[in-house]
């Protein structure tokens, strides 16, 4: 059911990338991974994934900047962004809230909730 969806996973921590990748692949998604925001942005532009799961604290380009760069891309075709972070401060909440189709998820995150969140989005999306 999810076979036609591609998810981009951006995180500088290998184990986290692996967990998300495995869980998504087992659910039938295509998964592409990036280990920092810059790599993520490049893949985002070239491969146009259906959803992005990103960390905030990353080398080169952080998750916030990645989201900001992603905003204009969302005009062309909407996609979901899930920001996974361990520091949920009010200011973090407020910039995430300003973004289109962007949700915040706290670390330690629950892989099953992440899947649920994606599924809900795709269901609502009707595609």
């Amino acid at each position: 059911m999810a076979s036609n969806k591609t998810i981009l996973v951006v995180d500088d921590e290998g184990p986290i990338r692996r967990i998300i990748e495995l869980k998504l692949k087992n659910r039938g998604y295509n998964v592409i991974t990036a280990k920092d925001g810059e790599e993520g942005l490049d893949l985002l532009r070239r491969q146009k994934p259906d959803a992005v799961v990103t960390d905030i604290m990353m080398p080169r380009l952080d998750g916030k900047s990645l989201c900001e760069h992603a905003e204009p891309l969302k005009q062309a075709g909407s996609f979901l962004t899930i920001v996974v972070t361990c520091r949920i401060s009010p200011e973090e909440r407020s910039w995430v809230a300003r973004m289109t189709d962007t949700v915040l998820m706290e670390k330690p995150f629950s892989p099953s909730r992440l899947l649920e969140c994606l599924e809900k989005y795709f269901e609502k999306d009707g595609s």
Binding site: R18, I19, L22, K23, E106, P108, F109, S110, P111, S112
Partner: peptide, 20 residues
């Protein structure tokens, strides 16, 4: 093995999340 370990890790994440 890597997938199994990832699965276990993933489960620990679920538990950690729940604990938190």
């Amino acid at each position: 093995d890597a997938d199994d370990i990832t699965e276990v890790l993933s489960q620990s994440f679920e538990d950690l999340h729940l604990f938190a």
